[in-house]
Each structure stands twice: as C-alpha cells, then as structure tokens.
Design a protein around this nucleic acid. Structure first.
Lengths: 203, 203
DNA sequence: GTCTATAATTTGATAGAC
DNA sequence: GTCTATCAAATTATAGAC
C-alpha cells in the first residue's frame, strides 16, 4: 500500500468526481464539493475557476473511461465470435466496478448537452464501424452468419450489457435483489449474452 | 378538433411535465415552469404548494404511463411467442411518442430516490412474474423452448427495446442519424427483437 | 384567483488579508 | 496557497393588496 498524500487539487478532483456522479451537474453545488473535500468553496474556485470547468474535466475522464475498452476489442485481431465474448466480458467487469457511470453519462448528455458536446471529442467511430462491417461481410461469405449491420450488432450487444446497470435501482427494487444478487445475475449474463447474440446471427 | 380552454392549473401541470422531463428536478426552477406556462411563480405555488409536490404528481403519472402496457400484455391470454411480439411492438410504439420518458424515470430514480420512492407504489410484480414463470414451464414441458427465468426474459426484452431510447442522443451523434433515421431503425427493431428473443430460447 | 412585493436562503464567483 | 468576508444574482416560498 503506497501511502500517498494527496494535494488539495487532487482531493477536490476526487470529491467532485464522487459528488457529480452521485447528484449530477445540476444537483451539485460548489459547496457540496468543498464539504466532501474538507475544504472551502474558495479553494475549489482557486484551482478550477468555475463549476463548469471542473465538471468538464471530470466528465471528459469518465467518458473516455467508458469507451476505451469497446474500441480496443472491436479493432483487435480476433474472430467475430471472440470479439463478442471479449466485449461483453470486459464491459460487465468494468461496469461492475463503476455501476453508476452509464447513467451519469446519459443523464448529462440529456440535461446539459451544451457542456457535454463542448467536452467530448468525436470518437473515430466510422473507421471502427467500417472495419467491423468488413469482418461481418467475410463471415457472411463463408456462410457462417447472416448479414447484419455492424451498427445493429453493437447496439444489441450494448443494450444487453449496459441496460441492467442503467435500470439497477429499479431492478433491485422490483425483483427484490440485493447487491450480491445483482452481481450474481451479471456473472450469469456474461455467459448468456454472447450466446443470445451469436444465436441471432448464426446460420 | 375540440377547442378546449385549459384552466390555469392544467396549463401549469402541462408546463411542469414538459420542463421536468427536459431538465430534471434539480435543473428546473419554479420560475422556469411559470414562464413556460405564461404565469407567475405565485400561481405555481398557489396550486401545488411546493416544487416537490408538483414534481411528485408529474412523476407518478409518467411512471404509471411507462409501466401500464407491459403488465397488461404479460398477463394477457396469449401464447409466449405472441406476448413477446406484442410487448416489443407496444413499447416501441409508445416510447416513440415519448422518447425521453425512460431517461427521465431512471435519472430521477438515481438523483432523487427519496422523492421517487415516496411517490411510487410498488407494482404487483411478483404475481405477474409467477404467472409468466408458469407459462414458461408449460412451454418447456411441451419441449418447444429451453428453461429461462421470467425475470431474465423480461430483462432481455426491455434491454433491447428501451436501451436505444436511453442512448438516443449519443447514438444519433455517433451513428450520424437524424430523427427519421432513428425512427427507421426502431421500426426495423420491432421485427428483429422478437426474433432475437425467440432464437435465444427455442429448441 | 391573480398579481406585486418581499422574506429568507443559497447559489457561483471574487476580493483581500495573511 | 489558504482562509474569511462579501457580492450580486437566483432560489423556494409566503404575505397581502385587489
């Protein structure tokens, strides 16, 4: 265990990350962040100038964190079947550690699109999609799967993996699940989602 | 066209519904609602006492609106295959009219659980699940499908139908879709989602 | 029922002492 | 770098005239 002493700036950043993800941009005040960090509003403004600048920095990091893995595996040197398995496994493992990240991203995209679109760079999604479309075309030519657009394949995979995290509070309430029960369901889905996806395209 | 004259109370209710769904509870001020309704803050407080009470009323209506159809078709006198088709079709049609409803519900459940849980009654979900589990067991006995928990079946259906609405702003940006393109994708999914679900359980 | 006026807090942000 | 003090604006909610 490295007993690192955090600077005030880092302490504020960590506090802001926690509170923004919990309460959103609109629900968070600079005072909330200062209190969580054990310092004052003035210190927050001293290091980050405005609430919006601090938020942009946090959001940018979280956004990249969410999308880093998907792009990596889609462009990796793997069979289509292996890619599906890897993406599902990676996403569920990663989101299990940070389950409120998807709703944070989507909420801010809905409530504060101006701030968000200023913050995020557009990902090189078209190149990635083209690569995947080519791989699909090869498999179709081999006669192993039916035709499907890369876009639709990705939407189906992400729907089945991410939706449970978005609906987590509601599912836990409606289905009477505790944290352990929810995690057990996720582990089961890691195996089942690739089966569902593959069954939907195999011939 | 019935040229109905709305009362001030109804005008405020409609304005509140629009603004709350757009900006969320934390992002909405009483002044925002008054301005949208073309009246004053005092009128809003006169009819609804507090911002929270007004929000609770709106949220309760929207919440019931979202869940009304699902329960109806799950308990209807239909084959399993027909239920799957009807639920998907109904949900996509309904959500196409009110695409920002799912993110509204999930956002408030995450940011303001105290208000939300005070507002919603717990749905009779267990009874509904038991009925569906029985129907699944009958199909399994007939040898038409493999065993699956009703809970997991519902989660898979809802994932594939609702997720595109939750991720709508992001998908439209990443995949370069306009409103028409997004709707075309939805119409296609109405046919494909039941196929995916059925392929995942048929023997 | 509808308005203006205003009370009491809280907000984001800055000034200035040390 | 860190604090207290403070600003101007916005917030929810109420009081009171008509």
């Amino acid at each position: 265990m490295s007993e690192t002493v955090l600077t005030t700036e880092e302490t504020i950043r960590n506090a802001a990350q926690k509170i923004f993800k919990q309460k959103g941009f609109d629900g968070t005040s600079v005072q909330d962040i200062a209190t969580e960090a054990g310092t004052t509003k003035s210190m927050v403004n001293y290091y980050f100038r405005t609430k919006e600048k601090l938020f942009s920095e946090i959001f940018h990091n979280e956004y990249r964190n969410l999308f880093s893995g998907i792009g990596f595996f889609i462009t990796a040197d793997l069979s289509l079947r292996e890619k599906i398995e890897k993406i599902v496994e990676f996403d569920i493992d990663k989101l299990s550690e940070i389950p409120d990240l998807p709703i944070f991203i989507l909420t801010e995209l809905h409530h504060n699109p101006e701030i968000v679109f200023k913050t995020i760079e557009s990902l090189p999604i078209l190149m990635v999609l083209n690569g995947l479309n080519n791989q699909i075309a090869e498999e179709v030519a081999k006669g192993t799967i039916r035709m499907i657009a890369a876009r639709d394949l990705i939407i189906n995979i992400q729907s089945l993996t991410i939706f449970p995290f978005l609906g987590r509070p509601m599912m836990m309430k409606l289905f009477g699940l505790d944290k352990a029960g929810f995690n057990a369901m996720l582990q089961q889905r890691k195996k089942e989602i690739p089966e569902i996806i593959w069954n939907s395209i195999k011939i």
